[in-house]
């Protein structure tokens, strides 16, 4: 059974159909990349899977481990193991990164029937994870994402992912706004989580990220549909030739 199964998914925003029948199956251990031009529905797909309000699913199904995801509220989906690394993480003044991380971690632990994390263990965990991502440990004292640079925000997303250890991680253009060094660090963070029990959906605009996070499958999303699928060589081809051919076919 696929870990994440998306079947003929149709979704509209503000009455306009954006996703027009997406079918995808992520097997445990796999990394799938989705590439496509701007405005084609990549973030819409990730938001629909994560359960954001304002998106109407008009047709199709999404299953996590065989469980119907579309029936669950966003927080339930997250506790069930879906993680979305946001393209544009929001700034939340007044809420420290540390309070937020601890609350999120404990929500997951409670759902799994585990006790809340001990304060010392929490600090140790954050220390270890921030070190891996080359982040100053002190940053957890700052309000969540407030005043973080673009790159810091993306690292913070990956930090959250490595702490929450999801079953399925969706990375929505996590590479945008990163310089090459940050890109490497973030990719290492992602790669360190790759495991036979976990799957990734890596959304990107550029092939560059896929040099570091090597995908098993690459899909082209154009006009709300998967226009082509292939191996990692498809990403190279897209880099060289662009998306024009897929847009034309779809039109």
């Amino acid at each position: 059974m696929a870990l994440l199964e998306i079947k003929n998914l149709h979704a509209s925003v503000a009455g306009k159909e954006i996703l027009k029948g997406i079918t995808l199956a992520l097997e445990p251990g796999e990394v799938h990349a989705i590439m496509g031009p701007n405005g084609t529905g990549k973030s819409t797909l990730s938001n629909v899977i994560a359960g954001r309000e304002g998106y109407e699913v008009t047709k199709g199904e999404v299953y996590l481990d065989g469980k119907d995801v579309l029936d669950m509220a966003a927080d339930e989906r997250a506790r069930a193991g879906i993680f979305l690394a946001f393209q544009y993480p929001v700034e939340i003044p007044g809420v420290t990164t540390s309070a937020f991380l601890k609350t999120a971690l404990n929500a997951k632990r409670r759902a799994a029937g585990q006790p809340e994390i001990d304060a010392m263990d929490f600090l140790k965990l954050v220390k270890a994870k921030t070190a891996v991502l080359g982040m100053p440990y002190d940053m957890i004292k700052r309000p969540l994402n407030v005043g973080f640079s673009g790159g810091e925000k993306k690292r913070a997303e990956v930090l959250q992912m490595t702490m929450l250890e999801p079953r399925v991680a969706i990375l929505d253009e996590t590479d945008s706004g990163l310089d090459i060094d940050a890109l490497k660090v973030v990719s290492e963070g992602v790669n360190s989580l790759r495991s036979p029990e976990r799957a990734f959906l890596v959304i990107t605009h550029y092939q560059r990220l896929l040099d570091y996070i090597v995908p098993d499958h690459v899909h082209v999303l154009a006009n709300g549909r998967i226009a082509a699928s292939g191996g990692k060589e498809l990403a190279l081809e897209l880099e060289a030739e662009g998306y024009a051919k897929y847009l034309n076919t779809a039109a």
């Binding site: 927080d75 997250a78 946001f86 993480p89 939340i92 999120a104 997951k108 759902a111 309000p143």
Partner: peptide, 19 residues
């Protein structure tokens, strides 16, 4: 954002009010 990290709505609202 908080829901996407598994935080239930009531806890999320409390966290945001405290913030």
């Amino acid at each position: 954002y908080l829901a996407a990290r598994g935080i239930d709505a009531e806890t999320a609202r409390s966290l945001l009010v405290e913030g």
